[in-house]
Design a protein around this nucleic acid. Structure first.
Lengths: 177, 177
DNA sequence: CCAAACGTTCAGATCATCCTGAACGTTACA
DNA sequence: TGTAACGTTCAGGATGATCTGAACGTTTGG
């Protein structure tokens, strides 16, 4: 494995962290593990990525919470070793689930609280909060359906990206509403 | 309109900024405009939200770039006035489009660049970048289809959140690839 | 031409987030 | 029990995002 290539991969993955909603250190560690066949120890990682052991430790812990890496033990070794979850789809799926839980759900809860806390007579606020709540409720149903089953969602993505039209997607108005 | 209610709405919308991918000041201004029937001037906004005129100016400019507010001119007035785009769906749609453009597209471009820059022989990196590219390509097709037409996407959301099954959504395994 | 009213910009202050590294806890083994 | 190897934590420093406010442009009217 070409070290320069791996380094470049680590850095581009790292700067893509924003898209996944994880920070740079986590993304870089994740990339390194994705690009390496052998399990790596905390020390290997900290040395290779030139980061502190503390940061590596925290980031590895967090990546395990996200479910995108696993800790393994090598017989005869005292150190902990880590490998990446090898299924990319599964990784994306976990990231999506986690982000819904961390970002979407609290926002929807806050919105509902705001709606309850709005006394009658504030028509404009009530109306707009209400519209938003209705839309986000629909979004939530879609997300929940999608995130319920990792296998099924694979098929769903394929279905939705395939060039076959379905109700609501075409130019021609097909009623509905 | 109840000032305390409006203030609370502004603050909850403001703290929801993260979900929309816009910052706190932008979200607060947007909320204030959503909760007010009359057009407001830059000065009105800066006073009401206790922020600097500079910040208000920059945030208003940015909100206009996102297409979620509009500048209007009142006859006989020198000041600029602002109102919120009144259709919530339209607002969410614009936000979604903008975020795809700002976050997703550059990440996919970076991924493709990384893939090209990976010399043959780096099998693991190539394979994993390739899998990811394939998935994101499918995601992109879905997003493009969804974001192509504001009206159609309304129907699509309804369709997807309705309790009718379609291929790939059920428990039963239907082949596999 | 000048002055007032208004909008915009951006250097530096403020604030939040992330990272480092020393201190500490735990385990294995003599 | 002592000590070496290792992992974890967290106070404080570094970095990056956001906000302020003074300086500067532009427009309007005298």
């Amino acid at each position: 494995m070409d070290a320069a290539t791996r380094a470049q991969f680590v850095e581009s993955w790292g700067s893509m962290g924003g898209l996944w909603g994880i920070n740079r250190s986590m993304a870089r560690i994740h990339a390194l593990l994705l690009a390496t066949r052998e399990p790596l120890s905390l020390e290997d990682i900290a040395r290779e990525l030139e980061m502190s052991r503390g940061n590596a430790s925290m980031s590895l812990k967090e990546l395990r919470n996200w479910g995108v890496i696993r800790r393994v033990h090598l017989t005869g070794e005292r150190k902990d070793y880590y490998i990446a979850e090898d299924d990319i789809w599964s990784m994306l799926f976990r990231i999506a689930s986690e982000r819904k839980k961390r970002e979407f759900d609290p926002a929807l809860a806050a919105l509902r609280k705001a709606l309850e806390a709005t006394p009658p007579g504030n028509d404009l606020v009530r109306q707009r909060l209400g519209e938003l709540e209705e839309i986000l409720r629909a979004v939530e149903r879609v997300l929940d359906r999608f995130l319920k089953d990792e296998e099924a969602s694979r098929g769903m993505l394929k279905f939705l990206s395939a060039p076959i039209p379905y109700p609501g997607s075409g130019k021609g108005k097909k009623s509905r509403g």
